[in-house]
Nucleic acid binder design. Structure first.
Length: 264
DNA sequence: ATGCCGGGATGTTCCCGA
């Protein structure tokens, strides 16, 4: 079974790339983030024509998550229990489904912006709610996988130059402690291998030639229950999907897909 | 050269992303 996660940075702009990637990578389940369109604009017909059931929720401008599956899509739930609000709204940043016997979460963790910004406190509250959710989900009988854009680099090696992040979010002690709390709850991180360079970055900014210079970050992560993590046979970042297309075609997302193979 | 950001609405400029 092949399970993947991809922050697509607008699912309408990226529909053609999404369909091409489904055809080439052949995932059984794909978690998407940053749909950036209202739920009704998600290209459900095109995705279904490609052989996938889809459940999605978007809010129109930012956020938005989806799960695509060709191995069943059951018990779909939206939002974290106790998910904090932003500006009075529970944003569409988390959803779960049971696919092929695996309980799967698609997550888009808040960015945080700067450590002084209220968005950063929101991010930490959000990660605390995620930890509580993980505890509850680990009590379920199925193998559990939590995939998505965590907006946290687990170690200093997971950004291209830690010296550039002295005052930044994504690398703070508090954010990393939130990841450690997930592990303390019983989750295990599934580490992808690098297909090029030493660190399997998953994000490269659109600006300043970040992709060709490989000034990237590893912020899209996969955590699994021990039953899931123990069944992983391979995991990698598909850098090919981050490359620009031919002239005149839509640009890539700024994130690359993260692919996990499991034999359960 | 993979090559100097991209997407959206608040719209012809600004906010956001990480």
């Amino acid at each position: 079974m092949r399970i993947a996660t991809w922050n697509v940075n607008n699912v309408v702009t990226r529909t053609e790339r999404l369909l091409a990637w489904l055809a080439s990578a052949q995932p059984d389940v794909l978690c998407l983030q940053e749909l950036k369109v209202p739920t009704e604009q998600v290209p459900v017909a095109e995705i279904e024509a490609a052989g996938y059931a889809v459940a999605a929720r978007g809010d129109g401008r930012w956020n938005g998550v989806a799960i695509l599956s060709r191995v069943g899509l059951d018990d779909v739930t939206y939002d974290l229990p106790g998910q904090p609000e932003w500006d009075g709204v529970v944003e569409p940043r988390a959803m779960a489904a049971t696919c092929g016997g695996v309980r799967i979460w698609s997550l888009y963790v808040p960015n945080g912006r700067t450590v002084e910004d209220p968005h950063y406190a929101y991010k930490l509250e959000w990660l605390a709610a995620l930890r509580d959710t993980a505890v509850a989900e680990l009590a379920r009988p199925e193998p559990l996988a939590i995939l998505g854009d965590f907006n946290v680099a687990p170690t200093d090696a997971d950004v291209w130059d830690i010296a550039k992040f002295e005052t930044s979010t994504h690398v703070t002690t508090a954010e990393r402690a939130a990841l450690t709390a997930l592990e303390d709850a019983g989750l295990v991180e599934v580490m992808p291998r690098a297909l090029k360079y030493d660190v399997p970055f998953t994000f490269w900014d659109y600006r300043q030639l970040a992709f060709p210079k490989n000034t990237g970050m590893r912020i899209d992560l996969v955590y699994g229950s021990s039953s899931f993590a123990g069944a992983v046979t391979d995991a990698y970042v598909d850098r090919e999907a981050r490359k620009p297309g031919t002239k005149g075609t839509p640009p890539p997302s700024d994130h690359a897909p993260l692919v996990v193979d499991v034999e359960l």
